[in-house]
Design a protein around this nucleic acid. Structure first.
Lengths: 192, 192
DNA sequence: ACATGAAATCTAGCGCTGACAGAAAACAGG
DNA sequence: CCTGTTTTCTGTCAGCGCTAGATTTCATGT
């Protein structure tokens, strides 16, 4: 009887993740406009109300997708930074990786940083994966730089601006490299 | 008979603007989620289909609001730049004005720079008000700076990033001044 | 002054959406 | 095999953007 309950919970957890994955795939394939509760339910081969037994509502599903994304972003940035031989190149590599992430997974990126959210940023309840992503930027600045957190914040904001303006067609897609180089050159640590 | 037609067209133009204004006011008061064609129609005291005799659809109304906004932003930035005594302060003043605009009219700002749009940016068909806004940034850099357009683009992007992340609660509202100062210091023309 | 025809406007409805209440089915335990 | 709980589904709600077709308004010609 305990074993049965365990199996059920296991299956339930699988289905939970299945919903998140399906939502993400659908969003990446056709955009978030196409992610309706009905289409999502059809895709996971359950009826619509089942979604509400896992999530409070559609917003909560988007949020779950976003949190998955935070983990991937942190790993992505970490990989980029580790591969860079020295600090100055580290910032460049992390920034390039960030923009690449945003460009290659626009729907996921939107869930994380554009769509309305109640996820806490820069707060005690901030998801650790998100904190980790931010820390990748912080680590690109010298520990003795009293304003490295501020620097990280501004770099992140600037990258975000470039990412979303480019994604929505408000700045031309070519010239990203120039913008990136310019930004990094100006915002990197001044030579000690 | 010609006079009648003229009066009608005048009234029609007034109603056109009335719809735009009502949409904007409703959005600024309750957010764009609250701007439905029904509520908007009720507010202008006409039936819903009348909206569609003026605009192709809801998107077109949002776009009209945005274009109004571009004009206001250009004027706002121009005022700020004119009031600054010298170039270095000009960039600072324009950036501060930009962030102020975004903060004080978040709904209008969203229509202009966040919501999906088919307005052409950096293009021959770009609305002149929008081009003018961009040029205010360009003018903050020295004419002999070969990369002043690039600089303007990056400054704008960074400000946009700060504006939207702050508006959606993804960076703390306090510290805006520090971010602004930091950004301007780093991105301004290097001393000739 | 009244009928006519066009123009402007409204009523009613379509196919969607997110969300939920209550019926139905599945299933473990006696 | 029956019982009671848990799970899942059917059916529905109010509201969305949008539109076809009925209705009203109104300048015009007799």
């Amino acid at each position: 009887m305990s074993a049965i309950k365990e199996r059920r919970e296991r299956e339930r957890a699988q289905r939970h993740q299945l919903i998140i994955t399906a939502a993400r795939e659908l969003a990446e394939a056709e955009g978030w406009e196409a992610v309706t509760t009905r289409r999502l339910a059809e895709r996971v081969e359950y009826s619509q109300p089942v979604l509400y037994s896992h999530f409070r509502g559609k917003d909560a599903i988007v949020r779950a997708v976003a949190i998955d994304g935070f983990g991937e972003l942190a790993a992505h940035l970490r990989r980029a930074r580790s591969a860079a031989p020295e600090p100055r190149q580290a910032l460049h590599a992390v920034c390039r990786a960030y923009l690449g992430f945003a460009t290659e997974r626009p729907a996921l990126y939107r869930a994380m940083f554009v769509m309305p959210t109640d996820v806490k940023f820069a707060h005690a309840e901030t998801p650790p994966q998100l904190r980790a992503s931010f820390d990748e930027f912080v680590s690109c600045f010298r520990p003795d730089n009293a304003r490295r957190e501020l620097s990280a914040e501004v770099v992140w904001s600037a990258l975000h601006g470039i990412a979303v303006l480019s994604d929505s067609g408000r700045i031309p897609p070519d010239g990203q490299k120039e913008r990136l180089d310019f930004l990094v050159t100006r915002l990197a640590d001044t030579a000690s």
